[in-house]
Design a protein around this nucleic acid. Sequence first.
DNA 1: ATTAATTGATTACACATGTAATACAATATT
DNA 2: AATATTGTATTACATGTGTAATCAATTAAT
Lengths: 124, 124
Amino acid sequence: MNNIPQISDAEWEVMKVLWSKSPSSANEVIEALEDQTDWKPKTIRTLLNRLVQKQAISYSQEGKVYAYFPLVSEDECVRSETASFLKRIYGGAFKPLLVNFLKEEKLSPEEIKELKNILDDKSK
Amino acid sequence: MNNIPQISDAEWEVMKVLWSKSPSSANEVIEALEDQTDWKPKTIRTLLNRLVQKQAISYSQEGKVYAYFPLVSEDECVRSETASFLKRIYGGAFKPLLVNFLKEEKLSPEEIKELKNILDDKSK
DNA sequence: ATTAATTGATTACACATGTAATACAATATT
DNA sequence: AATATTGTATTACATGTGTAATCAATTAAT
């Protein structure tokens, strides 16, 4: 059931809008993306159409316009993308990614503390 | 200088071979990938050519065959891919990825310890 | 009612990618 | 020398993606 479709970079931006607020009309999505991108409205409509075809989203006729909503949850997609990314780059092993990134990422003391708390929980 | 070229999924497999042993002839790469993939030799040669065009690898004429070698390091590429992945999926924030994954990944006690050590170092 | 504006559907087009096959040139074999 | 083999270069072709424009239908305005 939960076959997550391939979602491209540009499509992902559209998904983020719908995950944050749905249902949304095409115009609402277009408006939401106006700041972050300089895509023409037609471009965004194309992306919406492709996402419908991929069954990542769907819509219902609300009055005269379509009201789009996601068919897949952000969580599922993030998990799926992350898994395939890990597989691709790190051969599926999570730890090397962590080590690699912990070493160079700037994390605030609070964040470090939070992460340590999570680790503490896990070791119980 | 360090403009990392876009490396596709299939190309990445070829890069991994060259990172693990270079220089390698086309045939050596083909052989190395025989187990992991069912790509035809011609396919792998295409990938090698594309990587040369992208300036991800280069070659020198060794005797009668080309000896391919990477022009970009694995570390650079991993970092670059990871950064763009993070940007795409997590809006560039590293912590949510960590939190998300720490929660569901199975890590051995040793791994947890190692990660905590890294975190300890960082908080100094 | 005719025209303009809006929204959704269809079409476009270049470049990337997966996945090779064919052409060509140099070398090895008979 | 003619031919077969092998390695490289060029070409192929479908699908995905970025980035829209045009077409068509419906609604709004005059």
